[in-house]
Amino acid sequence: MSPELLVALVIGAGLFGTGVYGALSQTNLVMIMMGIELILAAALVNLVAFWRYLHPDVAAGQMFVLIVMTVMAVEMAVGFGVAIARFRSRGSVEMEEARELKG
């Protein structure tokens, strides 16, 4: 258990905790997406730490990081698409009003 791996994982855990707190505590769709971005960033840190300190010769680790980055970009694109549509119809993207999202 090399110290750098430990430091990297602790930082990843910290980011994960902040992301979860953020995603659950905010009332606005865009801020929740920022919480999710932080969670995905924590996953990125862990992935690179595992690649670097455990299997540096396997390129699949880096491939996985590219895929998680794609997920981040795609999630933002679709999230903002939904945000625009919702703002156009309801006038606000606050999660409180989302309860009436009927039909």
Partner: peptide, 22 residues
């Protein structure tokens, strides 16, 4: 009630721009 800050009544009155956003 928790939704006091909801933007709906803020954006209700404003006119819509050409792409429907207020």
């Amino acid at each position: 009630e928790p939704g006091f800050m909801s933007m709906i009544e803020l954006t209700e009155g404003t006119p819509r721009s050409s792409d429907g956003l207020q």
